[in-house]
Design a protein around this nucleic acid. Structure first.
Lengths: 201, 201, 201, 201
DNA sequence: AATGAATGAGGATTCATTCAT
DNA sequence: GATGAATGAATCCTCATTCAT
């Protein structure tokens, strides 16, 4: 009776495992070839199933692509949710916290290179995803401006887009966790203090 | 004084005009559909010529795409060349000059939406182009750091990528020249002074 | 008085009921889609069983189609057998009797629209079935000519085909029993007396 | 100057001839296999062109089928138009004239066996075509009833359907022109005078 | 008695590309 | 300088059918 008490997923059936394999193979092919150039035959070869098996689990090439994109969106949304600065933050912790937020985002993006490629760099999906991301970040920034953390003479949406642009560039290169921390440090520093020669630091 | 003495383009022959129409049509189709989804048949339809005419001027679909990309690269290179800060700049003019550089870039990018789409947002070409762009900007930044305009505790390449990321996001939306000036002002301000609440300003 | 004493079908097992459901579903799909366009997946969906279940009861799609056709043939044969004019018929009862024969046929055809569609209107089966039907009717007609009921200057086979053609057209439209009686009346009248303006009637 | 004066069709281009070959090949395949079972690959093989050539002239398999059907409809419509009894007909010429009408129809149907098969015996198109045919014939019959040629106690639509059914059966078998005349004679006789033993004839 | 899962084989359609004129 | 006509090669997708349970 005790078994499986905690697990939310009872145990994947054979079909579910096949489907998962196909989805992963699809993500890889879409990432490497783009939607049009990706061939179902390569996806199923990678997943080691026959062509009809693909259609057992996805209605069409488009549907599979959409599912890959959705995976990415969902993960990204979750990451964003964790990246909000808490209200009771001390002013001198801002830098740390911004760094942490950026790290969270970079880590989320780096967690699956294939999803990243499809969702962030392929024209078909990227713009819509970035638009959503932008809105969410802008909302966060607005709140943080209201809390007095950031200067208020720049529109949140503008800043959100800058952040997305920067992160997109950074996320492009394969990086280790510690490299990402370093990146996050630079980004936070640039965003907070700018490029101008600093008075003392 | 003889006619056409100064003009660098003597006078386009019929063939040259056809070729130009085809190239523009190709840019539009590639921009709207992406390389794979773009069809030669649509390109020639747009250019109002027959299919074989396309092969009279371009060796292949790939070759036409490459030519579109090259157009973009060339324009971009020229723009970058103008964006370097002059050495004898007064320190209090930095802001103006950075603003001007960013405006130059944004204007160059906005000058042809189709080229921009292909060269900056389509995975096939974008990374290479951005890599080149990054190197050039990094070189500029390094020089400017050496001249004492910018703080030196950030790697030029890092900064170059940030700038590219930001510019890419900004260039995405269709904008009027004056909107681009406004964008450039924000960008320069952010890059120079950061998001932190400013001591006095 | 005991239950099922008279019934020729002892009591269908579960398997037999499944098979019957499948056969009916097949008839419906074949009728609506034709042999080629009908899909096993739709048949089993209609019968609410799985795909393999189909092959538990029918060797192939063709076999199932053949069985549907056979059902129709059998019913038709029985109907024809009842439609023969009895020898000791009074001359003035011919009209009634012909009417009755036609009604019998029309009723038989109307008793299952799906079988009718497959067996009478789908090219795959119809010709063969009509050929058999034609022979049987021709035999009846020949006998009736010999008995002096019908004029003998027309070949029985010719007349049989006319009758089949007429009946086929009539059977096409969905009709109530009383509409079929009306149709039968017209048919009998036309066949017996023709379209020419009648001397007195 | 004199050349081509009478010809209404200037001279078929190569493409038009290819298209005609394809259409005929399609008619043959559709006739022999039915719409679903017919394969484009067989059609183009018969027309001795490549598969893409098919799509140069027809948008799809469906479109080609529709065109075949339309050819048949058009011919049939023309035939029907000629089969109307002229008003100034002498009563004793009715039989001849009915015979002639039926012959016209049978000849039209026999003129292209492939079109006939598709348009008259394949479920997909047959019903609609016969419905139209029925209306036209019924209109003719009504006019002829009004002119006093036929008895008026039978609905024209009913008679039209009978005629169509009979003709459909007759047209089924391959026949020579003289066989068709014989068929037409029988049909006219049956329709006019019926099967009843005739008083004197 | 029944099914979840899978596949071999085949068919329609599209597209870049090329002759022959 | 230009095109009507044609094709080789591929790709998505469907369907009847089966295996292991």
């Amino acid at each position: 009776m005790a078994a499986r008490t905690k697990s939310s997923e009872p145990k994947p059936t054979k079909g579910e495992r096949t489907r998962a394999r196909l989805l992963q193979a699809a993500a890889r092919e879409f990432a490497q070839q783009g939607f049009d150039a990706a061939r179902i035959s390569d996806i199923v070869a990678r997943a080691e199933v026959s062509q009809p098996a693909f259609y057992l689990y996805f209605g069409s090439k488009e549907a599979a692509y959409a599912e890959v994109i959705n995976q990415f969106r969902t993960r990204l949304r979750n990451a964003i949710r964790s990246a909000r600065l808490p209200k009771d933050l001390e002013k001198d912790q801002i830098a740390d916290r911004v760094r942490w937020s950026v790290t969270t985002l970079l880590d989320a993006l780096a967690s699956d290179r294939d999803l990243l490629e499809v969702g962030f760099y392929q024209a078909l999906a990227a713009e819509e995803i970035k638009a959503e991301l932008s809105e969410q970040i802008a909302a966060n920034v607005a709140a943080e401006q209201a809390d007095g953390f950031f200067r208020t003479d720049m529109p949140p949406a503008f800043f959100a887009n800058c952040l997305i642009g920067i992160i997109e560039r950074m996320a492009r290169s394969k990086s280790t966790p510690s490299e990402r921390q370093q990146q996050a440090r630079f980004i936070a520093e640039l965003l907070l203090n700018g490029l101008r020669v600093q008075p003392h630091s």
